[in-house]
Structure formats: C-alpha cells, structure tokens
C-alpha cells in the first residue's frame, strides 16, 4: 500500500506535466508553421518552458524517492 502511494505521487505529476508539455509543444509548432523565420526564438523559449514544467515532475520524483527510502 505504501509503495502504491509512492508510485501514485510520480504518476500524477508525470501525467499532468506530460499533458501541459504537449499543449506547449503544440502551440510552438503551430507558431513555427505559421512563421518559420521565428523558429530559433520559439525553440529557445520552448525548451525553457519545457524545462520549467519538467522540473515540477522531477521535484515530485525526488520526494517519491525520499518516501521510498523511508518505507
């Protein structure tokens, strides 16, 4: 049961961050398709935004690892 809670912590975070990353990437790709000359700018901003979203998953991952070692 405790392991389930640890797994759930990562799963929920990964699910939501994957969803938001998908939305962000979709918007960026539409932007590139509409305006290919701005692709460099968009790419840098996209990577930055993705890194910020990824960080939240990773924080919960660290918390899960800490919980796992406690059990």
């Amino acid at each position: 049961m405790e392991f389930l809670s640890v797994a759930l912590a990562v799963v929920v975070a990964a699910l939501s961050s994957a969803f938001s990353q998908g939305i962000a990437t979709k918007a960026a790709m539409e932007g590139i398709a509409r305006q290919p000359e701005a692709s460099g700018d968009i790419r840098t901003t996209l990577i930055l935004a993705l890194a910020f979203m990824e960080a939240l998953t990773l924080f919960s991952f660290v918390v899960a690892i800490l919980l796992w070692t406690k059990i």
């Binding site: 890194a51 990824e54 960080a55 990773l58 924080f59 991952f61 660290v62 690892i65």
Partner: peptide, 8 residues
C-alpha cells in the same frame, strides 16, 4: 534540483 533530479 532540476539538474540533479534529471540526472538522478
């Protein structure tokens, strides 16, 4: 934490 957690 971002760098650490990614690599870890």
């Amino acid at each position: 934490l971002r760098l650490f957690a990614n690599m870890f």
